[in-house]
């Protein structure tokens, strides 16, 4: 059976897997130092590029993994949610979030 598997899960399994994935998400974010607003904003002052490094290495790893898994036919990309594009709202939203990021420290 090919991935993604969510449709085969019972509701309890689905939510338990969600908690488990969230656990690792939170764990690695904390490991990277993303629990500190100071560390997060430091990149905008060219002091600490951990955010960029973590984010882009994570994107590259996931991207390559997805590319390979779909290439060998394990992951069915037609069932994977790809966020739809709305250029202007996403451009403006990004600018607002970036401004909020540097003001509030996320």
């Amino acid at each position: 059976m090919s991935a993604p598997y969510f449709s085969a899960f019972s509701l309890t399994t689905y939510l338990a897997v969600a908690v488990l994935l969230g656990f690792f998400f939170g764990f690695f974010l904390e490991r990277a130092g993303f629990s500190s607003a100071h560390k997060l904003t430091a990149q905008f002052y060219f002091k600490d590029f951990a955010v960029l490094k973590v984010m882009f290495s994570a994107i590259v790893v996931a991207m390559l993994g997805i590319a390979y898994l779909s290439l060998v036919g394990w992951l069915d990309m037609s069932q994977v949610f790809v966020p739809p594009t709305y250029i202007w709202p996403q451009l403006v939203g990004g600018l607002l979030l970036g401004a909020g990021f540097i003001i509030g420290g996320y």
Binding site: A3, P4, Y5, F6, S7, V17, A18, L21, G22, F24, F25, F27, F28, L29, R31, A32, G33, K39, F49, A50, K53, V54, M55, F56, S57, A58, I59, V60, V61, A62, G65, I66, L69, W74, L75, Q79, V80, F81
Partner: peptide
């Protein structure tokens, strides 16, 4: 803290697992 690339690879694998299991990202 962990070196950024180590944490990044961990995060990337978690994200990959999320796509494989859930069909969506984090």
């Amino acid at each position: 803290y962990w070196p950024p690339y180590a944490a990044g690879v961990g995060l990337g694998l978690t994200l990959l697992a999320t796509f494989v299991l859930m069909g969506q990202g984090l």
